[in-house]
Computed example of a mutant assay.
Amino acid sequence: MSDAPAIATHDLRRTFKDVDAVRGVNLSIAPGEVFGFLGPNGAGKTTTVRMLCTLLPPTGGTATVAGLDVVRDAAQVRRSIGVALQEIGLDPVQSGRELLELQCGLYGIPAARARTRAQELLELVGLADVGERRTKTYSGGMKRRLDLASALVHEPQVLFLDEPTTGLDPASRRTVWDEVRRINEAGTTVFLTTQYLEEADQLCDRLAIIDAGTIVADGTPEELKARMGHDVVALTFDDPGNGTVTAAERAVAGLEGLERTVTERDGTALYVRDGAAAITEIVRLLDAAGLRAKTINLARPSLDDVFLQATGRRLEGAEKETAA
């Protein structure tokens, strides 16, 4: 496997009129990695991916995919990548096998090889036993797996997945995770955007968090959680008003070991070195301020906490993930 990055960007930028959507993004993704890209809506995540997929030209900086410049070598880049977008577009009257063979034909793969390749891919994504069925009879998870297979017909070096499990039930989501792992084990580099933090934690070798067009944190999931170096004490209050939250922040401001407080609509997240020992002091300070917490939860840092600390807010999909 080559030592050259599968994806590399240097000071990558994109401006729309007076809006700087992407502001100097630097990435280096090794061949064979599963790389996660997280960000709130409007952070520049989709714009970055569109530039890497040659769908949108950069207004500054450089980017290479599979060793090819996304501007100068755009046609070659497109032949080297597979893309599975969030919206699945499948012909409902075609069978899974017919769809894959048609996709092979679009890439100039001869008919004999197309039949073999379709069978390989149906087996890869666990759909060999339903390959003759029309896609309109497939479940949402099966359609997503077939969409992954269709992005792989030309054996791309890099696969871009845009929120591949959005809208799936938890069981189907985990099945898609298994397929992504299998695809990656076959040697394909995977660039994954997701709003599910558990998905990033389970699948990604490394990840980056983008906010306001800038990378604000990057590393392996374990590195990002370890860098916090703190327990997380989450407090919620019955009254979500600014007055209560501000008073709560004042109450805990003097707590020894407190590195940062992030205030949300109805509560506060406290990062402390010894959460178990700190809870008694937190309760005492709240009592002194005439405040009573609705809930107090202690946990080791999660990717949700990393995201909250890096951006000051939670990822939109985090609430859906918890509900699921």
Rank of each mutant, 00 (worst) to 15 (best):
R206H: 10
G82K: 00
E132Y: 14
S139C: 08
W177L: 01
E87H: 08
W177P: 09
T137D: 15
R173V: 02
L124T: 09
L148V: 04
G82S: 05
G140K: 10
L99P: 07
V93M: 05
V125K: 06
R145T: 03
Y196D: 00
D162P: 02
L197G: 08
P170H: 04
I88F: 03
G167K: 09
D201K: 01
V125I: 10
A111H: 08
A151Y: 05
V77L: 04
P110T: 03
V176H: 06
L148M: 05
L122Q: 11
T165I: 03
D73R: 07
A114Y: 04
Q94S: 12
Q86K: 04
T135G: 08
D201Y: 12
V158R: 04
P92N: 00
L161A: 02
F191S: 13
R173G: 10
E163K: 07
E132C: 08
T166C: 04
W177F: 07
F160V: 08
G140Y: 11
R144V: 01
R117W: 04
L207E: 02
Q86W: 01
D129F: 14
L168V: 01
R133P: 11
L122S: 02
P110V: 14
L124Q: 12
Y107W: 14
L121S: 09
T165F: 04
V180L: 05
S150H: 10
D169L: 05
L146A: 07
L85M: 09
T175E: 14
V158F: 12
R115W: 11
A171P: 01
G131D: 08
Q157W: 10
V190K: 04
D129A: 15
D162V: 05
D178E: 15
G131H: 10
Q103R: 06
F191L: 11
L168D: 05
E185I: 02
L127A: 15
V180H: 02
E101C: 06
Q76R: 15
G187R: 06
T135Y: 09
V125S: 10
I209Q: 07
S172I: 04
A151E: 04
Y107M: 06
D147A: 12
T188L: 03
E199I: 09
R173T: 00
G167E: 01
L197R: 05
Q157L: 09
T135F: 10
L168P: 15
G105F: 05
E120M: 03
L102K: 01
E101S: 11
A112G: 13
D73Y: 14
V176R: 03
E199W: 12
T193M: 08
R113V: 10
D205A: 12
R145P: 08
L106S: 08
Q119T: 14
E123D: 15
L197T: 01
Q76D: 13
Y138R: 13
K143W: 14
G140V: 10
L146P: 09
K143T: 05
R79V: 07
G108A: 00
E179K: 12
Y107K: 07
R144A: 08
L127M: 13
D178H: 13
Q94W: 14
D169M: 05
P164I: 00
P110Q: 11
D147R: 11
E198I: 02
T193V: 10
T166S: 15
G108C: 07
L127S: 13
E199Q: 10
S139Y: 09
V125Y: 03
K143F: 07
R134G: 15
